[in-house]
Every structure is written in C-alpha cells, then in structure tokens.
C-alpha cells in the first residue's frame, strides 16, 4: 500500500474542504477501500477519516420517513427498531451481506460506494476499463458467470455488489450529498451509473462530494417486505441474484409494488417493468410470473451468466409468493 497523509475530520465542513485536496479520499469503515488500497487498485495520497463525523444518528423525519446518517454502521442500521419493523427488507438485506465483523465496520455511505467484485477488476494484470479506461474488458470473453444481465456495455459487464442498496432502491431512498458547493439530494435509483462507454464513472457523486445521509420515505407498504439472496454458498458470499420486494394487497389486488434486483447490473436494478405488471393485478402466482417475465425480457446474457435470467425470474416469483403467503419478514 502506498504511504499517504492521514487526517481525521470531526465536522462536515472540514471534511468537504479537505476532500478538495488532489488525490484525497474519504475513509469510512475501510472494508472496501482498505482492501482496494492494499491491492493497489486505489492509491490515494491523502486519506480523510470521516468516521468521527457527527453523522451516526438515525432520526425520524416529520413526514414519517427516516434519516440515516452516512456514518451509521451497517449492523446498527440493521438492528434499529424502526428499520426492523417499518423496513424489514432493509434489515434483511444488510444482514445478508458480508459477515458480522464487516457489518460492524462498514458505514452506510461506504456501502453505497463499494466497488464491483468482478475478478478482473481486482487483478492488476487483467484488462479492465473500469480500472483503466480504454484498456479493454477481460470479463466479456472470460469468466463472466457473475456478470451483469442488464445494462451492460461492450466496455464493461460488472455488477454492483451491495445488498443494502437493492433494498434502498426498492424503497426509493434519497441520498444526501454535501460539498463546499452546497447540498444535493439524489434518488438512489439512478445514483449508480450504467457503464456505457465510461465504466470508470460509477456513481453520480462528484469527486468533492460527501454522502451525509440516506433518507427513507414514509412507505407503509415497506412494512410488508422481504429480501431474498441467492448465492453460491449459504452465507458470506456475494449475490448471484437477489430480490428486494415490498407489496400491498387489498382485496386480493396488488395496490403497491416495489421490486429491485441485485447481482444483475452495475446498479441495484429497480424492476419497473415488473412493478407495472403487478400494480392492479391480482396477487396470484400467475401475476408474479408475468411480472418476472416482463422484467427479464430486456436481459442480455453473456457466455456464462445466462442462468441468471431464469434464476432471477424464479427468485422474483418465489419472493413475491413468500411475501404473499407468509407475509412480511418483520
């Protein structure tokens, strides 16, 4: 790891001023950045520790939503009473990720910004447009079993690895960003970018911006929600496909549907097509299947990841069915 200057920011103004130094990086829990620095994929000159910032609160908003400070640790968020009761899909998604140790370290802001697990991104000897623009993509003609089926490009097929973000996408979370230029609020859906011809641009965050909070809207349907993660071993593995779902059913008819997929794209994939099919449809197996089919029509397989299309369909159907039959995960 390259040696670097280290400073601790105790307030947001100091942090956002410090980040304007060329080559500076914010450091949260370190679970992703320190790993990437050790592998020389990230080589910052200055590291600004932001874990002391006063952004570690979870507060109820006047409109019924929740404001989650960006420095709240993943485990704290999953353990919070309001998350467990009002947004169980989020608690489940967080608990499905990483390990107990890592969840105790990782911050909410850092989780949003974590980088892909594409093995070619992690190997400096491989070609990767995300790491080095224009170098090529070794995944397309190589091991791409866990690559994207939605929104990939000829330049990059990497997926976003977060579980938490899949739930946040389903919940229409808002990301609050702060810089010396002021405050911005962006929907999480769309915050992560599809690769296009510039896969190195992964999110809408500007280099000088700090994630200060995530806001969850008041969403009664979220109380009836679930997260389902399908992976290669029972625990401590990234998703092949995951599903975050929240529905509201009245008189047998779906009146609200929130669905997002993980492991399938460079962003947590909000399943708008499926939601359209579900809304107003009877809460039946047939509707679930049609919704899944509708979402996956746009999927494009590579040489090894075609199974994800069928897997995603089945995972969507299974999750919606479970939600319908067994109810909420709360």
């Amino acid at each position: 790891m390259k040696d670097f200057a280290y400073l601790t920011a105790h307030d947001v103004p100091t942090a956002v001023r410090a980040i304007t130094t060329p080559g500076a990086k914010f450091l949260g829990g370190g679970t992703n950045l320190v790993d990437l620095m050790r592998q020389n994929i990230e080589r910052p000159d200055t590291v600004i520790d932001i874990t002391q910032l006063p952004l570690d609160q979870i507060e109820e908003l006047p409109d019924g939503g929740l404001r989650i400070g960006a420095m709240v640790r993943n485990s704290r968020l999953a353990a919070h009473r309001l998350i467990r009761t009002r947004y169980p899909v989020l608690a489940q998604a967080i608990l499905a990720g990483a390990s107990g140790q890592l969840r105790n370290m990782a911050t909410v802001g850092g989780n949003v910004l974590q980088r892909t697990r594409c093995p070619y991104f992690a190997d400096l000897a491989a070609r990767c447009n995300k790491r080095e623009q224009g170098s090529g993509c070794d995944a397309i003609g190589g091991f791409n079993r866990n690559a994207a089926i939605f929104g990939a490009s000829e330049h990059c097929v990497a997926t976003h690895p977060s579980d938490m973000c899949v739930a946040l996408a389903a919940l229409d979370a808002i990301i609050e960003l702060e810089s010396v230029r002021g405050t911005r609020r962006l929907p999480l859906v769309g915050f992560h970018m599809l690769p296009g011809d510039s896969p190195q641009h992964e999110t809408a965050i500007a280099p000088d911006e700090l994630i200060t909070a995530i806001e969850l809207p008041d969403l009664p349907a979220a109380a009836r929600s679930r997260y389902r993660k399908v992976r290669d071993r029972s625990s401590y593995a990234f998703a092949l496909v995951s599903v975050a779902a929240a529905t509201e059913v009245r008189n047998g008819v779906i009146t609200e549907a929130r669905l997002a997929l993980g492991g399938v794209a460079a962003r947590p994939w909000r399943a708008h097509e499926a939601e359209r099919v579900l809304l107003g449809a009877p809460a039946t197996e047939d509707s679930f299947l049609r919704a899944a089919e509708a979402e996956l029509t746009a999927a494009v397989p590579l040489s090894q990841n075609g199974f994800k299309i069928e897997l995603a369909k089945r995972a969507i159907t299974a999750t919606l069915r479970q939600l319908h039959v067994e109810g909420s995960a709360a």
Partner: peptide, 23 residues
C-alpha cells in the same frame, strides 16, 4: 484459470468459496 492467459482469476478467499459455518 483463464484459458487465454493461464492466470488464476479467483485468487482470493472471497471469490473462491470454501464451506462456511452455515454450509
């Protein structure tokens, strides 16, 4: 092993899956 380069692609304990407790 990447058949193009002979390089091991998943040279880590996060991408090579040994059984965990839950398995």
């Amino acid at each position: 092993v990447d058949p193009r380069t002979g390089r091991i692609v998943n040279a880590s304990l996060s991408e090579y899956h040994v059984p965990v407790h839950a398995d």
